[in-house]
């Protein structure tokens, strides 16, 4: 029963961070918390349904642009409204995209999601009048729980109310996802990940479950995307670029997709490591890439796989071979 204690301790530590850590580091926690939400959703797809999406920046973009549009063009500042609208739009876009993508698996699924991501990127880049093109659209400071907070200095706003608001969203998103993966629905997803042919003979409709997982993960990505906006203050197409999709997959692998919190840990390490390497060496991408590659090579089960060897490592390694169902049954 150390698990719940560790999680509780982590939440307390995050809550106390603004009191002890430097403003600089506290500000870095904001993208971390936004990514935590995105990755909880992405891992429903990757760790629980066995599908790797290379297009989830699309949904991050949907969420971030929703916030930018609402605050800039519609004078809607309420972050609650923004998050709900982001979630709804994320689901709306994910429905047709998902309906098409989940008919394919493995690399074909990945390529299709990548393609949709590219289409969206090009759309936001080229529709200058709507999106501001490469200059983007401002994400004006949202009000929190009905309070405007317009008068606060920006940093105070971010490390104060906005920080705790984000933490609240992360906690709620985590609790929801925890329930989802421990529900009958979550179990069905795992059967599909492990052996779709067998799942079908049990009456579990593979495509339908994958579709639902896809939409849920898109909703999470959109909500996380909306949270990314206010600290930057401006939403531009790089948020929707495919390398961004790659980064979040990487964060997931880094932390370990076989455990619930692995991807969240991955996001934390990714963000702080990137920042640290950037500050100490000039060719930071080179060094950063090498460090990440080393982690993947020496910890194939992700960082959490190192902490909890047994199951995570075995599962990560096994996924490559023994996880595949025998070919006999495929028509």
């Amino acid at each position: 029963m150390t698990g719940p204690l560790v999680v509780a301790a982590a939440v307390v530590a995050i809550a106390l961070a603004p009191l002890v850590a430097s403003t600089y580091h506290v500000l870095l926690m904001l993208p971390f918390m936004a990514y935590a939400v995105v990755l909880l959703g992405l891992n429903l797809l990757l760790g629980y349904a066995g599908l790797v999406s290379f297009g989830h920046a699309l949904f991050i973009g949907i969420g971030a642009y929703t916030g930018a549009f609402l605050t800039s063009h519609f004078k809607i500042r309420s972050l609650e409204v923004i998050l709900i609208a982001a979630a709804a739009l994320g689901a709306l876009v994910a429905a047709p995209v998902g309906a098409l993508c989940v008919r394919y698996v493995k690399i074909y699924f990945g390529m299709l999601t990548l393609a949709f991501g590219m289409v969206f990127y090009t759309f936001v880049l080229k529709f200058y009048r709507l999106t501001g093109g490469d200059e983007g659209t401002p994400f004006l400071r949202p009000s929190l729980l009905g309070r405007s907070l317009e008068a606060m200095p920006k940093t105070d706003y971010l490390v104060g109310p906005y920080y705790y608001y984000s933490l609240g969203v992360v906690v709620v998103a985590t609790l929801c996802m925890w329930r989802i993966v421990h529900s009958p629905f979550g179990l069905c997803l795992k059967t599909i990940r492990d052996n779709p042919a067998k799942a079908e003979t049990l009456g579990i409709g593979v495509t339908r479950f994958r579709f639902h997982a896809f939409v849920i993960s898109a909703v999470y990505a959109a909500v996380g995307g909306a949270l990314l906006g206010p600290p930057i203050g401006n939403v531009d197409p790089t948020l929707a670029y495919w390398t961004h999709s790659g980064n979040i997959v990487f964060m997931t692998l880094l932390g370990g997709f076989t455990s619930f919190f692995g991807p969240v840990v991955g996001a934390f390490v990714f963000i702080y490591l990137q920042n640290w390497v950037m500050s100490v060496v000039p060719y930071w991408r080179l060094i950063f890439g090498a460090i990440l590659a080393a982690i993947v090579i020496f910890a194939p089960g992700g960082l959490l796989g190192l902490v909890r060897p047994g199951r995570a490592a075995v599962r990560a390694a096994g996924r490559r071979g023994a996880g595949a169902p025998p070919a006999e049954s495929r028509p």
Binding site: D194, N195, R315, R319
Partner: peptide
């Protein structure tokens, strides 16, 4: 050929 869910 046995069909199981290896990680369940």
């Amino acid at each position: 050929l046995v069909h199981i869910f290896p990680d369940l």
